[in-house]
């Protein structure tokens, strides 16, 4: 089975690195990191991911704005986006992702198991 491509956009390099390492260790995913929020859309266009993990609070651009750019793109608008956020509580979202107003949210710090479950749900397994 071909590896699924996941794009991780977060200004915190150590976090994206950690996500990549973890996801790639499963052998199922190919991960690309992007640490500049405003580059998120361009990178997505170029990388053509199957799914995007997107930080909400980034210094140069709001995660929501990046998501809007992506959803405006014919090619990319079907790509599921999961927001990673430090400002909502685990109690307010499900451990494996909650749908709030059409978007899925995961609260930081997220546990690997929960993250993978969420990804698999999104990718339709």
């Amino acid at each position: 089975m071909p590896k699924k491509k996941i794009l991780v956009v977060d200004d915190e390099a150590s976090l994206t690195r950690m996500l990549r390492r973890n996801l790639e260790a499963t052998g199922k995913y190919e991960v690309k990191e992007e640490n500049v929020g405003s580059q998120g859309y361009a990178t997505a266009k170029q990388f053509q991911p199957d799914m995007i993990l997107l930080d909400i609070m980034m210094p140069d651009i709001d995660g929501g704005a990046v998501a809007a750019q992506i959803q405006d793109d014919e090619q990319l608008k079907q790509v599921p986006i999961v927001f990673l956020t430090a400002i909502i509580q685990k109690e307010e979202v499900d451990d494996t992702g909650s749908n709030i107003g059409g978007s899925t949210f995961l609260a930081k710090p997220v546990k690997l198991g929960d993250l993978i479950t969420c990804i698999e749900n999104k990718l339709g397994r």
Binding site: E12, M18, A86, K108, V110, L112
Partner: peptide, 12 residues
């Protein structure tokens, strides 16, 4: 954010 990094490090 740092907690998230540590958490993922631990999981790794």
């Amino acid at each position: 954010n740092p907690l998230a990094v540590i958490q993922l490090g631990i999981d790794y």
